Computed example of a mutant assay.
Amino acid sequence: MSRPKRELRKKFIVFCEGDTEFHYIDHMRKNQGVEISLQVVNMKGGGYRNFLNEIRTKANTNCLAKFIIVDADRIHSDPGEKTGFMELLEYCELQNKKRSVPHFLIVNNPDFEYIACLHIPAYKGQKTAAYIQDQLGFKNVAQFKNKEDIYAYLNRNNNSYQIMLDRIQESPKAVKNRYKVKKKTFDIEIKKTELNLEAQRGSNLEEFFDVIQW
């Protein structure tokens, strides 16, 4: 008698840069209430080339899309990192052109700490390090970044990811993916990725929330 065929769950794979993003997405995954699972890979602060190496070795089996969530700060501060970023971008574009697993490059500019502050209605664009210490009461940014319940913290009281999404919707974007999603068939296609390295303080993180049907 043959064994019943086991059906694998469709999944998204999320590559994120550090502990803050990891804890945020991991807790969001646990609270999402949808059938599609999220697999989060914490890059532990690795550079753009480290992202590329990890993405190349991660299997595509039953994967609907890959999200590569990076900060933009190193693009402008380190010429070598800018080269690594361009290689990462070109790899994602190549996979999308091949109609392989869609690769969404998500760029938080300058960093995820800025995006985190955008969850808070009282935040008006101040320097994030000073705001995190003076207004949120953390000893330093490192303490904030290591907070494991960061998702719950940023979505309590009047704070919300929806406020953040509303704020970044029309923000300048270093990267913007032009894509379409057929949600009934889980068909996702990225038609074009636009690049603007002159953009200041923004993100295309709304693409991630949109595609996973949050």
Rank of each mutant, 00 (worst) to 15 (best):
K183Y: 15
F186S: 04
R178D: 09
K192R: 10
K192P: 14
K173R: 11
K192Q: 15
L195Q: 11
K191R: 09
R178K: 12
A174Y: 09
F186C: 04
E198C: 03
S203M: 08
A174M: 15
L205F: 14
T185D: 09
E206L: 03
K173Q: 11
R201D: 11
R178I: 00
Q200D: 15
G202V: 02
A174N: 15
L205W: 06
L195A: 10
K192V: 03
K191P: 02
L205M: 13
K191A: 04
E189R: 10
K182Q: 06
R178Q: 09
V175L: 13
N204F: 02
F186K: 13
Y179Q: 03
E206W: 01
K180Q: 15
L195S: 06
A199F: 07
D187H: 15
K182T: 05
N196S: 07
G202F: 04
L195E: 10
E198K: 15
Y179A: 02
E198W: 07
I188W: 11
F186L: 14
I190G: 06
K192I: 00
E194N: 14
K182Y: 08
N204Y: 05
I190Y: 02
K183R: 15
K182M: 04
K184G: 03
V175K: 06
R201G: 03
S203F: 04
D187M: 14
K180L: 10
K183S: 07
L197I: 12
K191D: 11
N177L: 02
N177T: 10
L195C: 07
L195Y: 05
E194A: 14
K184W: 07
D187A: 10
N196Q: 09
N196E: 07
L205G: 08
L205V: 13
L205K: 08
N204C: 02
V181W: 07
K192M: 01
Y179H: 09
E206H: 04
K173F: 00
N204M: 02
A199G: 02
K180E: 10
R178N: 11
I188L: 13
E189D: 09
V181R: 12
R201Q: 13
A174K: 15
A199P: 12
L195N: 04
I190D: 01
Q200T: 12
T193P: 01
Q200E: 15
V175C: 04
G202Y: 03
T185W: 13
S203C: 05
T193K: 00
K184M: 10
I190A: 01
K191S: 12
V175E: 04
